[in-house]
Design a protein around this nucleic acid. Structure first.
Lengths: 210, 210
DNA sequence: GGGGTCATGTAATAGGTTACATGATTCT
DNA sequence: AGAATCATGTAACCTATTACATGACCCC
């Protein structure tokens, strides 16, 4: 019941969306994804592309329309969206927009294991992250401005705005975490807990072989 | 050069961290992950667990310490962290904390293809998302409060605080996006663009064989 | 006209998830 | 005692990524 969708890779959704208005061959699809910068939000590589195209075909969401052989390039197969494909793509979009899905960001992993690091070191590391985040955010901001100047409708930038909102939130979070970890009562508590754990381990490993 | 780390699955990091103070068998590792709620931040399932344990062993980060056969349960192999394993785990943690990594959240995918949806429908869908986000946020908040009451150190909740910060940011973003999409000049612009695309497609598909 | 690099695709490999298997324990 | 559930692991299956292959074009 986890994944009742026949093809689950987001790349497939992009394929369906791009075939909405005109049939295309896979390479062209890939080219457009990169050109329009969608590969910043959708993990893209050619291998996966051919894979999802094949999966979509098997599922009946796209159909081989013709095979062009203009003796220059290798033979290219052009695919067109089927009715089922259009339905699937709308359904999928609706779900993605309306239902938040649980995700597993890497930083969440780090935070959930943060206890293993000495708090003073953690603070240093977090400062580094803060700097990196700032510079990323600046980059995104600049990109948005540049694109806007080219007269692109803001809806086509909405994903960058989202990214920026997330970055800003994370920057604030990191800043406040740095403060929290610096508090001397925490540092002391951590050191005690750590030594506690260590002692336990040492005494218990005495009686095991190794 | 993408993944010079021998074992890349975050679950492996959790395994290393849990073996820091005492050797354990895989099932016990899994039990603790679930018990301490780490499976909210680290994708967990037993199959993957046995997989990463094996990978870690091959990589020399953990070593088989003994095989217990207390005729009750199936034979269990107990693993211990090696020195290389401890080094790897600290190095990995440091990287995760200090270096933001590019991620591909599902909502970003949706946003980058948002243009295919009629803006009035998009607004409805976003309202639904907003509601869902609020209720999730409320849940996380409640969880944090409950755990705090049990006297748990706040560092062990820091990942939930992070999640909350993200949720709040997304809520604000969605709210403002709803406003933006409702603007009548955008709705008009979208309808024109859409009809444009449709016309082009129809006329071009006339001369292709179906 | 030979060395790069586009354009295009296939195949080999590795990674992860689901499904299956099996004995013990506990519940009614 | 039979049913449900816990404890534990293996194996089969999918998915995704990397590596390889090949012909045209382009540039001095």
């Amino acid at each position: 019941m986890a994944n009742r969708r026949a093809v689950g890779n987001p790349l497939a959704l992009a394929v369906l969306a791009n075939l909405l208005f005109e049939p295309m061959h896979p390479y062209e699809l890939g080219r457009r994804l990169k050109e329009t910068g969608k590969d910043r939000n959708i993990r893209y590589n050619r291998g996966s592309l051919y894979m999802v195209v094949e999966q979509l075909r098997k599922a009946g969401f796209i159909a081989e329309q013709e095979t062009v052989r203009d003796t220059a390039r290798p033979e290219r197969t052009v695919y067109a969206l089927t009715d089922a494909g259009r339905d699937e793509m709308y359904d999928w979009m609706r779900e993605l927009v309306s239902r938040p899905e649980h995700e597993y960001p890497k930083f969440g992993v780090a935070l959930s294991l943060l206890g293993v690091l000495d708090p003073t070191e953690a603070v240093d590391l977090l400062r580094l992250r803060g700097i990196a985040l700032e510079s990323e955010a600046a980059g995104v901001r600049a990109g948005i401005e540049a694109t806007k100047k080219m007269g692109v409708l803001w809806v086509f930038l909405v994903e960058e705005e989202y990214r920026l909102a997330q970055l800003d939130a994370e920057i604030r979070f990191v800043t406040s975490l740095i403060d929290g970890l610096g508090a001397p009562e925490y540092v002391r508590a951590w050191q005690e807990a750590f030594n506690e754990g260590k002692k336990k381990w040492e005494s218990s490993s005495d009686q095991g072989e190794r």
